[in-house]
């Protein structure tokens, strides 16, 4: 569905992504994991058009979308759900939905129809329609953000750290909502720090490190790996010294990109 080939991108002087290759299967949930600073969120920023790649290709169902503007990419069928804090807290829930249909603003009927359809799937949209989004609980906010992204009937939904700062109940809501998004027909590409959460939710897992993909497998296979915690936890005593060298390499890359 989405394919990245040799993607290179960054901010200012450094390249955060150094040749990322990644393919996302239609209808699947794919989760990108990896340590801080590996470039996970940057991958999403490039796909959603917030950041122009320096090199490489991004294709959606075979058509190139690299370097196009965010509204164009939304129209093409990819929507990103931002990290916590991307909800418009001063707007009502209903208004958030309307803004979600920004690129469809000439087609009011369609927006209206979509909001009605989504309210069936996510009852809270109807129940709290007139309330300020900022007054909702953490999990409820996430539902609104997910629903907001679905207004444009995207083929692909990008999730950036969907459980960041959420309590367990809200995380469970995110889990179910993501499954729901998938069942509504969308392909999901997500970035998640909470590795087990992400891999239990996903069909496929991708491990990134230092701006590259170092491992891609089914989520189940990744979860079953004995060196799982070493991969994501940094060097725990259990992981032992083997992980140390890798850890230090990572730190030095991070220093290089920050210096």
């Amino acid at each position: 569905m989405i394919e990245l080939r040799d993607l290179t991108a960054g901010y200012g002087g450094g390249d955060v992504l150094q040749g990322v290759d990644l393919a996302v299967e239609r209808g699947s949930i794919t989760c990108v994991v990896g340590p801080n600073g590996a470039g996970k969120s940057t991958v999403l920023r490039v796909i959603s058009g917030l950041l122009r790649p320096r090199l490489g290709e991004v294709t959606l169902a075979g058509a190139s979308i690299a370097g196009r503007s965010t509204p164009d990419i939304i129209r093409a069928g990819i929507v990103q759900v931002p990290q916590a804090g991307g909800l418009f807290g001063d707007l009502t829930v209903h208004e958030n939905m309307l803004v979600g249909g920004h690129v469809l603003r000439r087609d009011r009927k369609r927006v209206k129809r979509r909001i009605a359809e989504l309210a069936e799937a996510f009852p809270i949209l109807g129940e709290r329609a007139g309330d300020k989004a900022g007054d909702l609980s953490g999990g409820q906010r996430r539902i609104v953000e997910f629903a907001r992204a679905l207004i444009t009937e995207p083929q692909v939904v990008l999730l950036d750290e969907p459980t960041l700062g959420l309590d367990p109940r809200a995380s469970a809501v995110v889990f179910e909502t993501t499954k729901m998004v998938q069942s509504l027909g969308a392909t999901v590409l997500m970035v998640e720090q909470n590795v087990r959460f992400g891999l239990k939710l996903a069909d496929h897992g991708v491990v990134m490190e230092r701006g590259r993909v170092i491992l891609a497998d089914t989520a189940e296979a990744l979860l079953a790996r004995p060196d799982m915690s070493a991969l994501f936890f940094g060097s725990t005593p259990q992981a032992g010294e083997a992980a140390e060298g890798r850890e230090e390499a990572r730190k030095s890359t991070a220093a290089g990109s920050l210096a």
């Binding site: 367990p168 109940r169 995380s171 469970a172 889990f175 590795v195 959460f197 994501f232 936890f233």
Partner: peptide, 8 residues
């Protein structure tokens, strides 16, 4: 760190 007990 790895995933919340409750959620898991």
């Amino acid at each position: 760190y790895l995933g919340d007990d409750f959620v898991a």
